[in-house]
């Protein structure tokens, strides 16, 4: 407490420079630890995939190939090299943005990813925005009004928890696409198609993702808001004659926002996995099918690419959430 007073800044100008320097070093620190995580995860994945080992070259060249052809393929892929050397060479080219080529299709991994990421990201971002808005509205309403809204949110959160997202997807595709034919059952997304094709193809998958996450998000935002409403300072603000609306929108929501954002960021991380299954159900040309085919074949460069992309998204999301939370909470800003 006492040393805190030494850090006082008398003018707002110095305060804002201090704040931006602190934020800058904070972001640098987080980026650095993000890179450490990225390295750790890629090394772990690489070493794990090493166990898949031997039969890969045989799988690629086919059953009819001679042992010489298999051996030649192994040399070509660098499989004859020791593990550490292989990882080092993967890492050095990955650092320059070259993630190698698929062992099975020879397509450059970076290209395969970049053609598919937009589909997945459009879906995830749309679903997340919808979940964020709806969950915040429902959660705050449930916390403040209690009563029927509150019960509805709690019950649907339990239902949402009980049904896996992909089961919702299966139900939607069976009912609305296959039985009622309201939506295409498989994607019509292809290079050059119009926005309407995107909307039609993504409506059901996004709906499945939203239905899966919205009630749980709302329930957790509800408890974050209730926790803040029960804080002592809220009572003191009331005793000072501040209106309920001002207390809610200026004070309570601001303090509840970090918890709410963290809830949503965890949902987004979960959604990166869930969307793989959703893409399979709706036959969408996103990251999902690539992830599935590469893992079932043991296509190491592609698996590595998918893992790197996912972990990078997670790191960026966590960084953004941390920065916003730091901006909202002066205590984090100072320390």
């Amino acid at each position: 407490m006492v040393e805190g007073r030494n850090r006082f800044s008398t003018t707002s100008a110095t305060e804002s420079t201090l704040w931006s320097t602190r934020m800058f070093s904070f972001i640098l620190k987080r980026l650095f630890s993000g890179i450490v995580v990225l390295l750790t995860v890629s090394a772990l994945t690489f070493f794990l995939l090493y166990f898949a080992g031997g039969s890969i070259a045989r799988n690629i060249v086919g059953d009819q190939a001679s042992p010489e052809q298999v051996a030649a393929k192994e040399v070509e892929l660098g499989l004859d090299q020791p593990l550490i050397a292989r990882f080092a060479s993967w890492l050095t080219s990955a650092a320059t943005g070259d993630l190698g080529r698929s062992w099975f299709t020879s397509e450059p991994v970076a290209q395969a990813l970049s053609s598919r990421i937009p589909v997945t990201m459009v879906m995830v971002v749309t679903a997340m925005l919808l979940i964020g808005i709806l969950a915040a509205l429902l959660g705050v309403a449930a916390a403040v009004k209690r009563g029927p809204i509150d019960r509805a949110v709690q019950v649907s959160a339990i239902i949402g928890d009980s049904i896996p997202g992909f089961v919702i997807g299966i139900v939607l595709v069976t009912l609305l696409a296959i039985q009622l034919k309201l939506f295409p059952a498989t994607s019509t997304i292809a290079p050059g198609v119009g926005v309407d094709a995107w909307i039609l193809s993504l409506a059901l998958p996004v709906l499945a993702l939203v239905l899966n996450g919205v009630a749980g998000g709302a329930q957790q935002i509800r408890s974050a808001v209730i926790k803040q409403l029960e804080r002592d300072y809220v009572r003191t603000l009331r005793s000072r004659g501040i209106s309920e609306n001002e207390i809610l929108f200026k004070h309570v929501l601001r303090s509840a926002a970090p918890a709410g954002l963290t809830v949503l960021s965890l949902q987004l991380i979960g959604m990166l996995g869930g969307v793989v299954i959703i893409e399979a159900i709706f036959a969408l040309p996103g990251i999902g099918p690539l992830a599935v085919s590469s893992t079932s074949q043991g296509d190491l460069p592609v698996v590595m690419g998918v893992v790197i992309y996912t972990v990078a998204v997670v790191i960026v999301v966590n960084l953004v959430v941390d920065v916003i939370n730091g901006w909202l909470n002066p205590k984090v800003r100072v320390s």
Binding site: L272, G273, V276, S296, G298, V303, V306
Partner: peptide, 19 residues
């Protein structure tokens, strides 16, 4: 904190590829 920031399904896909 690392384990919690990994998307489980993607990791399991990699595990599937390995094992």
């Amino acid at each position: 904190s690392i384990l919690m920031s990994l998307p489980g399904l993607i990791v399991l896909l990699a595990i599937r590829a390995a094992f």
